[in-house]
């Protein structure tokens, strides 16, 4: 079913999964957070994940770059399976960009240094090269003039855009977003969403945990609804919003759309 719905959407792209998750199970102690998750993400596909608080959305996308360790099943990212091998983990992490709810910028570094740190460390770029690319990306997220400031001097929206630019500086093959706008004031949500929409249009593969249904409608190839650690329903946005199948999805949608 997954591949069927995916192939419909990404007609112009070759259909090859960049992330393959198979029978993924994870427990926190006795608590079963993720239950038999199967998921394939194709190149350039945009997936929006939603669901009630505590349903395991964050845990799922954090498993993809092993910020969380899973106990059963397999996760294959770009042909490499996630195991305990630190080298492999770091290789996958360098190819997977992550944007956090609370930005998590390095407070002791300037905006520019935040962006160049990883390329210099991990990609072994020269400072000059890294600076050049960082400035280019900061221009793309529309804050090149803030490059010399420290994160603490920026607004939340600006910080999140820096965080996006920072992740893009690694030239990732996939971008993960964990509720990137939920810590922001309403007037700043828009500027971050615009940045994300542009990124989506550029062909990036994206997994986005968000409750911004406008964004999902506009950008997503597929919307996934999670509840109690399971993928309850997934569909293209039109069908997902207009005729949800499961009662749990209906309830959830009625709650967030009336909000």
């Amino acid at each position: 079913m997954t591949s069927a719905s995916a192939s419909k959407k990404s007609t112009k792209n070759e259909i090859s999964p960049i992330i393959t998750i198979n029978k993924l199970n994870k427990w926190y102690g006795k608590f079963h957070v993720l239950k038999d998750i199967d998921l394939e993400v194709n190149k350039t596909e945009k997936i929006v994940i939603c669901g009630p608080s505590g349903s395991g959305k964050s845990t799922l996308i954090r498993c993809i770059n092993r910020l969380e360790v899973h106990q059963e099943g397999s996760i294959i990212v770009d042909g490499t399976e996630l195991t305990d091998d630190v080298k492999q983990i770091n290789e996958i992490r360098s190819d997977v960009g992550m944007v956090f709810q609370h930005f998590n910028l390095f407070p002791h570094l300037t905006v520019l240094e935040n962006c160049t740190l990883a390329p210099i460390w991990v990609r072994k770029k020269s400072k000059l090269e890294a600076d050049e690319m960082a400035m280019e990306l900061l221009t793309k997220v529309k804050i090149p003039d803030q490059a010399k400031k420290y994160p603490g001097q920026l607004s939340g929206g600006q910080q999140q855009r820096v965080a996006i630019a920072r992740a893009l500086c690694m030239q990732p093959r996939v971008m993960l977003f964990d509720e990137p706008t939920s810590a922001l004031d309403p007037e700043m949500i828009k500027e971050v969403l615009e940045t994300m929409i542009e990124l989506a249009e550029s062909g990036m593969t994206m997994l986005v945990v968000t409750h911004e249904m406008g964004f999902a409608n506009k950008v997503a190839d597929r919307v996934i609804f999670m509840d109690e650690g399971q993928i309850v329903e997934q569909n293209d946005p039109k069908n997902f919003f207009n005729n949800p199948k499961s009662d749990r999805t209906k309830l959830f949608l009625s709650q967030i759309l009336n909000h």
């Binding site: 770091n90 992490r93 992550m98 998590n104 390095f106 740190l117 991990v122 992740a167």
Partner: peptide, 19 residues
């Protein structure tokens, strides 16, 4: 959280420590 950001791009132990 900040440590996690550096982990997420694949920094090595010494890079995380020193940087």
């Amino acid at each position: 959280d900040v440590m996690e950001a550096s982990e997420a791009f694949g920094a090595s132990y010494s890079q995380k420590l020193l940087g």
